[in-house]
Amino acid sequence: MTPTLSHRLDAVARKVVPAALGVFFVLISAIPFYLPGFGPVAPNFVLMAVFFWAVHRIDLFTSITVFFIGLLLDILVGTPPGINAAVLVLVRTVAASQGKVFRGKSFLVLWWGFGLVALASGLVIWALTAIYHLTFISPLPIIFQMTMTVAAFPFLAWIFARTHQKLFQHV
């Protein structure tokens, strides 16, 4: 393989792989797992992925990619379209702007930061859903979901970090 070709392939991978990963996490969020009580409180994988890559490699997930991933999540999961798109674009921007705070620090700092982001996202999702349906909605499910998301973050972050090392280190 000539260096130019491999470079070109790298460039393509750089553009396509993050988006494909995003779509993969959306699909994982949508498919049934048949675990009792799991569906409504399943961790938000997409939120974790967007946060992780916004902190470490903002260039891999552009705002537009994140927007369309959020929109796809809304459509496949059946939430009012636009809610996850708005939340994910916001999370990307916030995480990217605070990237310096987290990079190179211990994992606990990143986890703590993600906890805050998950809390804020949960609040926004809950408020937007309630406004969308023009009715009060119990916030309990989103509290459970975000707790699960924060609890699952170390595990997923480890997988993301491995993926990152394997795929994007030289990109």
Binding site: I31, P32, L76, V77, G78, T79, I142, Q145
Partner: peptide, 15 residues
């Protein structure tokens, strides 16, 4: 066959 259920906290639907 059910191919997707809602992973959302505020939706109860399947595809």
């Amino acid at each position: 066959r059910v191919i997707a259920d809602s992973g959302g906290a505020f939706v109860r639907s399947v595809v």
